[in-house]
């Protein structure tokens, strides 16, 4: 068992999964919040823009988005989110792996931002209309009332759906195996190919690994959603 974990490089693979999840979660949260603000703004064009993003991205398979990041964003458009050279001018030996990693993060962020946006919107729906009216009536501008009154309450009301998005994101990181990021699902394939006799324990180990990642997340989310709930 130990030697399977070592040979299949499962520990570094899981470490990569965690890194993918953290970066993607951070960017998805930022992008999703921006899109939610677009959808809440009192400007029709921005609403339409936000709604189109969500409709388009939410209904596109993640695999498609991730592969498109690699083949279109990088392959066709030449957008290269990693450097071929190190600061001292020598060639970057990790160019391909960091390029694939970052393209993967971009794909995951784009995809999950749509769900983050909808989670935040569901949080906004927990806020009574009077809160925004009170904010406006003391003279706060729209951006001020978003920052001071609406978003802080929306995030607290959205912790459970945001947690669900985060848990889904952790598991969805496996999709970036398709563009050559050597994370857990990629290693699964290695086991299937080179250690077929250990397929069952291999599956079990990886499944266990994901449970270890997501179970505490779930507990943390339900703890936070109770602790931070806005009392009305």
């Amino acid at each position: 068992m130990i030697d399977l974990i070592e040979q299949a490089q499962l520990l570094p693979a899981f470490f990569l999964t965690i890194q993918l999840a953290l970066w993607s979660a951070a960017f998805a949260l930022i992008l999703g919040t921006v899109i939610a603000i677009l959808r809440l703004a009192p400007v029709g064009v921005l609403n339409a823009l936000g709604a189109s993003y969500v409709t388009l991205v939410r209904n596109t398979p993640l695999t498609l988005i991730v592969v498109a990041c690699s083949l279109v964003l990088w392959g066709q458009l030449g957008i290269e989110p990693a450097s071929r050279r190190l600061p001292d001018g020598s060639g970057n030996p990790d160019f391909i792996s960091s390029l694939n990693f970052r393209l993967g993060v971009i794909g995951l962020s784009i995809y999950h931002a749509a769900f983050v946006c909808e989670a935040i919107r569901s949080g906004v729906n927990t806020i009574p209309l009077g809160q925004a009216e009170a904010a406006r009536s003391i003279g706060l501008t729209f951006p001020q009332s978003l920052r001071e009154v609406i978003l802080p309450q929306a995030f607290r009301g959205a912790i459970t759906p945001l947690g669900n998005v985060l848990i889904a994101l952790v598991k969805n990181t496996t999709v970036v195996a398709a563009i050559g990021v050597f994370e857990t699902a990629y290693r699964m394939r290695w086991i299937a190919e080179f250690r077929p006799a250990d397929l069952m324990p291999g599956f079990a180990l990886v499944a266990l690994g994901f449970v270890i990642l997501t179970l505490p997340l779930g507990l943390l989310v339900s703890h936070l959603s109770q602790r931070l709930a806005v009392k009305r």
């Binding site: 009216e133 406006r136 003279g139 501008t141 009392k231």
Partner: peptide, 19 residues
């Protein structure tokens, strides 16, 4: 917004900022 700042409003349902 600037004009509203000069007009105080008290609501039926108080609407204090809950957080």
């Amino acid at each position: 917004a600037r004009l509203r700042a000069d007009v105080g409003m008290v609501f039926q349902s108080f609407n204090l900022f809950a957080h």
